[in-house]
């Protein structure tokens, strides 16, 4: 059976693509109408158009793997300073956010410690919930004479300062060390997980590529073997023919020598 042949006089390929994607532009509407009329009558064009639609349906099934985006949010915090590092490092935190976090931490810590910071004519007063008894006499300064009051204040303040220093220093150091340790451990864990993921992905990809390569090599090998086999067959035939000729010549010589 003969293939149907198209006799469209214009640029058939372009017209076919314009119709396939329904994108011909306003100026080409007359061309398109003409081609549509042609397609209704032309079996070759109909077959090809259907086939191309089928290809489009198959193309629609190609989806890229789900991307893992994690850097975008960091661009908004400080894009002017260094967008490169903002995009590259998902853990990057801008300076202002760090400052806010620091103020929050200090505020929360002060609240937990029941800290009361007060500054007046008599100087700086710092009280905590833990030193309320030591600070209690300072609550009634009006009743005592001024000189004794001042001495008492100084002594209280010095005692309070010593107590605060002794209480805050170890706990601050311990908190910082603990936070550092937990943040480092967390970071190491995440990095390890990322490295593991990446290694697994690379192994899978490599294995797949090697499998493809091996398949190609096998196919090529088979084709080469067939070719070699054919070539050997030809050589054998040639050799066989040569042997036959030689034999005939030998027979001829023997026959002629016997006469």
């Amino acid at each position: 059976m003969t293939e149907p042949v198209c006799t469209y006089p214009g640029d058939r390929d372009e017209a076919l693509i314009a119709l396939l994607y329904d994108d011909g532009g306003a100026e080409a509407s007359a061309d398109r109408a003409r081609f549509e009329a042609h397609v209704r009558a032309c079996a070759a064009c109909r077959v090809e158009l259907d086939a191309l639609r089928g290809i489009r349906a198959q193309l629609a099934r190609w989806a890229p793997p789900e991307p893992k985006f994690g850097a975008r949010a960091n661009l908004q915090s400080n894009p002017q300073s260094n967008p490169q590092s903002a995009l590259r490092n998902p853990r990057w935190v801008p300076a202002w956010a760090q400052a806010v976090a620091a103020v929050l931490v200090v505020g929360v810590a002060a609240g937990i410690a029941n800290l009361d910071v007060h500054y007046d004519r008599s100087g700086l007063t710092i009280r905590t919930g833990w030193s309320s008894r030591a600070a209690a006499p300072a609550a009634q300064p009006a009743a005592a004479p001024a000189a004794a009051d001042a001495a008492l204040w100084k002594a209280d303040l010095a005692a309070l300062e010593r107590q605060l220093r002794s209480e805050l220093r170890p706990s601050q150091a311990a908190n910082t060390a603990a936070a550092q340790r937990s943040s480092d451990a967390d970071l190491v864990r995440r990095v390890r997980a990322l490295v593991d993921d990446s290694e697994k992905r690379q192994q899978r990809e490599l294995a797949l590529r090697i499998a493809e390569l091996m398949r190609d090599v096998n196919v090529q090998r088979q084709a080469d073997l067939v070719r070699v086999d054919r070539a050997l067959g030809l050589v054998e035939n040639k050799v066989g023919v040569e042997v036959l000729k030689n034999r005939q010549q030998m027979n001829y010589f023997i026959r002629t020598s016997q006469r």
Binding site: Q203, R204, L206, A207, I210, A211, M214
Partner: peptide, 10 residues
């Protein structure tokens, strides 16, 4: 050894 790796992967 990529061959070994491919074998080990699957």
């Amino acid at each position: 050894d990529v061959m070994e790796l491919a074998a080990a992967a699957e």
